[in-house]
């Protein structure tokens, strides 16, 4: 039986006007007006609970060249591991100041960054927990559809028992783990590069 699902198609090279609007993306800057994007790469406000983090990285293609026209989107839980979604089954309070969704187009160096908070542990099936992680979607011209991956944080105690990481071949797990890079403006910085191909090809998920 057919699923009737509408097929995915590439984002193409010109998604900025629709998804990541900045004045610099326009040849006619007045078209942008004051309609600069409302869904951006800063996920918290001053009242949001949790450890501030800055996640930054570069998206690379199969020749290890930076991709200057990719879009990285993130979805994550709050500091207590609750998703700000009516479909979260947890019973504790959700941090209403934190939507948990953000997006960042890569810049002329292929780089993206997010300012967020470190998510809490998220429940897994059967009473187990998942280590803190950020869910990621990446899309670009040349990607016939978007791909899904995850960002974990190095040195987390929960990595060894994480039920998703344990399904990933051990030799590839490192592609999912952001490396701590010290503190900057009160935020812990993490480095997470995406490699669409090659020796360090990022693990992508199907679910």
């Amino acid at each position: 039986m057919p699923s009737w699902q509408t097929p995915a198609q590439t984002l193409g090279p010109f998604f900025h006007q629709g998804l990541a609007r900045t004045r610099q993306a326009f040849q006619l800057p007045w078209l942008c007006g004051d309609a600069v994007d409302v869904i951006g790469n800063v996920l918290f406000n001053e009242r949001t609970l949790g450890q501030r983090i800055r996640v930054e990285g570069v998206v690379y293609d199969g020749l290890e060249e930076p991709m200057v026209d990719a879009l990285v989107e993130v979805w994550q839980a709050d500091a207590h591991g609750r998703y700000n979604s009516p479909l979260d089954t947890g019973e504790s309070a959700v941090d209403a100041t934190f939507t948990g969704f953000g997006r960042a187009p890569t810049d002329e160096k292929g780089a993206f960054s997010f300012l967020s908070i470190k998510p809490g542990n998220v429940p897994w099936l059967g009473g187990l927990v998942q280590a803190p992680h950020i869910n990621v979607i990446v899309g670009a011209r040349g990607m016939a559809r978007q791909a899904f991956t995850r960002i974990y944080f190095d040195a987390d105690a929960g990595l060894a028992s994480d039920p998703v990481l344990s399904r990933v071949p051990a030799a590839r797990r490192h592609t999912l783990i952001a490396r701590a890079g010290g503190e900057h403006d009160g935020a812990l910085t993490y480095r997470f590069d995406l490699h669409l191909q090659g020796e360090n090809e990022t693990v992508f998920f199907d679910f």
Binding site: Y83, S85, H133, A144, V164, Q197, F207
Partner: peptide, 26 residues
């Protein structure tokens, strides 16, 4: 241009958890 930008290794199948089953509300 998919030749250089397509992930080539098979995707890792994982069960659907709250991370995939929840989503942003705008």
């Amino acid at each position: 241009s998919t030749a250089r930008r397509a992930p080539l290794l098979p995707a890792v199948a994982i069960p659907q958890s709250l991370s995939e089953l929840t989503g942003p509300v705008f």
